[in-house]
Computed example of a mutant assay.
Amino acid sequence: MAATDIEGYLAFFRAAEALKDTLRSGHTRQGRPESTAEHSWRLCLMALALADALPGIDIARLIALLIVHDLGEAVSGDVPAPAQQGDKTVSERHDFVSLLAPLPEPARARLLAAWDEYTAVETPEARLAKGLDRLETVLQHTQGANPPDFDYAFNLAYGRAHTDAHPLIAALRAPVDAETERLARR
Protein backbone atom coordinates (compact mmCIF):
# COMPACT_ATOMS: atom_id res chain seq x y z
CA MET A 1 0.00 0.00 0.00
CA ALA A 2 1.30 3.43 -0.90
CA ALA A 3 2.31 5.80 1.88
CA THR A 4 -0.30 8.34 0.72
CA ASP A 5 -3.01 5.69 1.01
CA ILE A 6 -1.85 4.77 4.50
CA GLU A 7 -1.99 8.42 5.54
CA GLY A 8 -5.44 8.75 3.95
CA TYR A 9 -6.81 5.78 5.88
CA LEU A 10 -5.34 7.07 9.12
CA ALA A 11 -6.78 10.54 8.51
CA PHE A 12 -10.22 9.00 7.90
CA PHE A 13 -10.01 6.81 11.03
CA ARG A 14 -8.97 9.84 13.09
CA ALA A 15 -11.83 11.94 11.74
CA ALA A 16 -14.38 9.15 12.28
CA GLU A 17 -13.35 9.01 15.94
CA ALA A 18 -15.47 12.14 16.42
CA LEU A 19 -18.52 9.87 16.32
CA LYS A 20 -17.56 8.71 19.82
CA ASP A 21 -18.20 12.26 21.07
CA THR A 22 -21.27 12.93 18.91
CA LEU A 23 -24.14 12.86 21.38
CA ARG A 24 -27.72 11.81 20.73
CA SER A 25 -30.96 12.72 22.50
CA GLY A 26 -31.15 9.39 24.32
CA HIS A 27 -29.42 8.58 27.58
CA THR A 28 -27.82 5.48 29.04
CA ARG A 29 -29.20 3.78 32.14
CA GLN A 30 -26.86 5.90 34.22
CA GLY A 31 -28.16 9.11 32.65
CA ARG A 32 -25.17 9.87 30.44
CA PRO A 33 -26.01 11.06 26.91
CA GLU A 34 -25.57 8.25 24.41
CA SER A 35 -23.06 8.71 21.60
CA THR A 36 -23.80 7.98 17.95
CA ALA A 37 -20.96 5.45 18.00
CA GLU A 38 -22.68 3.56 20.83
CA HIS A 39 -25.95 3.59 18.88
CA SER A 40 -24.20 2.22 15.78
CA TRP A 41 -22.43 -0.46 17.82
CA ARG A 42 -25.68 -1.81 19.26
CA LEU A 43 -27.28 -1.77 15.82
CA CYS A 44 -24.49 -4.00 14.53
CA LEU A 45 -24.86 -6.27 17.56
CA MET A 46 -28.60 -6.54 16.91
CA ALA A 47 -28.00 -7.54 13.28
CA LEU A 48 -25.38 -10.09 14.27
CA ALA A 49 -27.58 -11.60 16.99
CA LEU A 50 -30.63 -11.79 14.70
CA ALA A 51 -28.73 -13.27 11.74
CA ASP A 52 -30.27 -16.74 12.04
CA ALA A 53 -33.77 -15.26 11.98
CA LEU A 54 -33.10 -13.26 8.80
CA PRO A 55 -32.99 -15.75 5.93
CA GLY A 56 -32.00 -14.25 2.61
CA ILE A 57 -30.35 -11.23 4.22
CA ASP A 58 -26.66 -10.61 3.58
CA ILE A 59 -25.60 -9.97 7.18
CA ALA A 60 -22.19 -8.59 6.22
CA ARG A 61 -23.91 -6.11 3.90
CA LEU A 62 -26.45 -5.23 6.60
CA ILE A 63 -23.69 -4.56 9.12
CA ALA A 64 -21.82 -2.42 6.58
CA LEU A 65 -24.94 -0.27 6.11
CA LEU A 66 -25.38 0.05 9.87
CA ILE A 67 -21.76 1.07 10.37
CA VAL A 68 -21.86 3.87 7.80
CA HIS A 69 -25.45 5.10 8.20
CA ASP A 70 -24.66 7.84 10.77
CA LEU A 71 -20.97 8.46 10.03
CA GLY A 72 -21.71 11.87 8.54
CA GLU A 73 -22.77 12.96 12.02
CA ALA A 74 -19.08 12.97 12.96
CA VAL A 75 -18.88 16.25 11.01
CA SER A 76 -22.00 18.23 11.98
CA GLY A 77 -23.50 16.23 14.84
CA ASP A 78 -26.86 14.57 15.37
CA VAL A 79 -30.18 16.33 15.05
CA PRO A 80 -32.82 14.59 17.18
CA ALA A 81 -35.84 13.44 15.17
CA PRO A 82 -38.31 15.83 16.86
CA ALA A 83 -36.07 18.79 15.95
CA GLN A 84 -35.52 17.84 12.31
CA GLN A 85 -36.97 20.18 9.73
CA GLY A 86 -37.13 18.92 6.19
CA ASP A 87 -34.94 16.29 4.59
CA LYS A 88 -31.49 16.15 6.18
CA THR A 89 -30.18 13.69 3.56
CA VAL A 90 -28.41 16.30 1.41
CA SER A 91 -26.48 17.84 4.31
CA GLU A 92 -25.64 14.45 5.86
CA ARG A 93 -24.39 13.15 2.50
CA HIS A 94 -22.25 16.27 2.09
CA ASP A 95 -20.78 15.71 5.57
CA PHE A 96 -20.17 12.03 4.82
CA VAL A 97 -18.43 12.84 1.52
CA SER A 98 -16.15 15.32 3.31
CA LEU A 99 -15.33 12.69 5.95
CA LEU A 100 -14.44 10.20 3.20
CA ALA A 101 -12.20 12.67 1.34
CA PRO A 102 -8.84 11.35 2.64
CA LEU A 103 -9.55 7.77 1.55
CA PRO A 104 -8.32 6.25 -1.71
CA GLU A 105 -11.03 6.37 -4.40
CA PRO A 106 -12.06 2.67 -4.23
CA ALA A 107 -12.70 2.89 -0.47
CA ARG A 108 -14.53 6.23 -0.85
CA ALA A 109 -16.75 4.81 -3.58
CA ARG A 110 -17.53 1.61 -1.64
CA LEU A 111 -18.45 3.40 1.59
CA LEU A 112 -20.48 6.07 -0.19
CA ALA A 113 -22.35 3.38 -2.13
CA ALA A 114 -23.26 1.72 1.20
CA TRP A 115 -24.48 5.05 2.61
CA ASP A 116 -26.50 5.74 -0.55
CA GLU A 117 -28.00 2.24 -0.39
CA TYR A 118 -29.06 2.78 3.23
CA THR A 119 -30.60 6.14 2.39
CA ALA A 120 -32.47 4.88 -0.68
CA VAL A 121 -34.12 2.10 1.39
CA GLU A 122 -34.62 -0.03 -1.73
CA THR A 123 -32.77 -3.26 -0.91
CA PRO A 124 -33.87 -5.80 1.70
CA GLU A 125 -30.73 -5.01 3.72
CA ALA A 126 -31.39 -1.26 3.61
CA ARG A 127 -35.04 -1.68 4.64
CA LEU A 128 -33.95 -3.89 7.52
CA ALA A 129 -31.20 -1.44 8.49
CA LYS A 130 -33.72 1.43 8.66
CA GLY A 131 -36.06 -0.68 10.76
CA LEU A 132 -33.29 -1.72 13.14
CA ASP A 133 -32.12 1.90 13.40
CA ARG A 134 -35.58 3.05 14.48
CA LEU A 135 -36.04 0.06 16.81
CA GLU A 136 -32.71 0.66 18.54
CA THR A 137 -33.62 4.29 19.10
CA VAL A 138 -36.96 3.60 20.74
CA LEU A 139 -35.45 0.73 22.73
CA GLN A 140 -32.73 3.04 24.09
CA HIS A 141 -35.33 5.59 25.06
CA THR A 142 -37.07 2.96 27.21
CA GLN A 143 -33.82 1.95 28.90
CA GLY A 144 -32.19 5.30 29.48
CA ALA A 145 -32.44 7.64 32.44
CA ASN A 146 -33.97 10.38 30.33
CA PRO A 147 -34.77 13.89 31.58
CA PRO A 148 -38.18 14.37 33.27
CA ASP A 149 -39.57 16.24 30.24
CA PHE A 150 -38.58 13.53 27.74
CA ASP A 151 -41.30 13.04 25.08
CA TYR A 152 -41.91 9.28 25.14
CA ALA A 153 -45.16 9.66 23.18
CA PHE A 154 -43.18 10.83 20.13
CA ASN A 155 -41.60 7.37 19.94
CA LEU A 156 -44.91 5.59 19.49
CA ALA A 157 -45.12 6.84 15.89
CA TYR A 158 -41.39 7.35 15.25
CA GLY A 159 -40.11 5.20 12.41
CA ARG A 160 -43.26 3.09 12.38
CA ALA A 161 -43.23 2.56 8.59
CA HIS A 162 -39.65 1.27 8.79
CA THR A 163 -40.14 -1.03 11.77
CA ASP A 164 -43.42 -2.38 10.39
CA ALA A 165 -41.75 -3.22 7.06
CA HIS A 166 -40.23 -6.44 8.46
CA PRO A 167 -42.26 -8.88 10.58
CA LEU A 168 -39.39 -9.66 12.96
CA ILE A 169 -38.65 -5.99 13.63
CA ALA A 170 -42.38 -5.34 14.12
CA ALA A 171 -42.56 -8.23 16.61
CA LEU A 172 -39.55 -6.87 18.49
CA ARG A 173 -41.04 -3.40 18.55
CA ALA A 174 -44.40 -4.43 20.05
CA PRO A 175 -43.14 -4.95 23.64
CA VAL A 176 -40.91 -1.87 23.33
CA ASP A 177 -43.98 0.17 22.40
CA ALA A 178 -45.84 -1.25 25.41
CA GLU A 179 -42.98 -0.08 27.64
CA THR A 180 -42.97 3.30 25.87
CA GLU A 181 -46.69 3.70 26.53
CA ARG A 182 -46.13 2.92 30.20
CA LEU A 183 -43.34 5.52 30.39
CA ALA A 184 -45.43 8.13 28.56
CA ARG A 185 -48.20 7.80 31.19
CA ARG A 186 -45.84 8.53 34.09
Score class of each variant (00 low, 15 high):
Thr123Gly: 13
Arg29Ala: 06
Leu111Trp: 11
Gln85His: 02
Arg32Ile: 02
Asp95Ala: 04
Arg160His: 10
Ala178Trp: 10
Thr28Trp: 01
Ile67His: 09
Ala3Gly: 02
Pro106Lys: 01
Glu38His: 00
Val121Met: 10
Leu100Glu: 09
His94Gly: 05
Ala37Arg: 02
Ile6Arg: 04
Ala165Glu: 06
Leu66Val: 10
Arg61Pro: 05
Ala83Met: 14
Ala101Cys: 02
Ala113Cys: 13
Trp41Asn: 14
Thr163Val: 08
Arg173Lys: 11
Ile6Ala: 12
Glu181Ile: 07
Ala53Pro: 04
Val176Ile: 13
Leu128Ala: 11
Gly31Ile: 08
Ala107Asn: 08
Val97Gln: 07
Asp78Ile: 08
Thr119Gly: 14
Ala101Gly: 03
Glu105Thr: 05
Arg127Pro: 13
Leu71Trp: 09
Arg93Thr: 15
Thr36His: 12
Asp21Met: 08
Arg127Ile: 09
Thr36Asn: 13
Ala170Glu: 14
Ser91Glu: 14
Ala171Leu: 13
Pro33Asn: 07
His166Arg: 09
Trp115Glu: 15
Tyr158Gly: 11
Thr36Asp: 15
Arg160Met: 10
Ala49Arg: 04
Val138Ser: 02
His141Pro: 06
Ala129His: 08
Pro102Glu: 01
Gly56Pro: 09
Trp115Thr: 15
Val79Gln: 04
Asp116Gln: 11
His141Ile: 02
Ala145Pro: 12
Leu168Thr: 02
Gly77Pro: 10
Leu103Trp: 00
Phe154Ala: 06
Glu136Asn: 06
Gly26His: 00
Glu136Lys: 00
Pro124Ile: 00
Glu7Met: 03
Ala126Arg: 04
Gly26Gln: 02
Lys130Gln: 12
Leu172Tyr: 07
Glu117Phe: 06
Ser76Pro: 09
Gly56Trp: 00
Glu73Val: 12
Tyr9Ile: 06
Thr28Tyr: 00
Glu179Tyr: 05
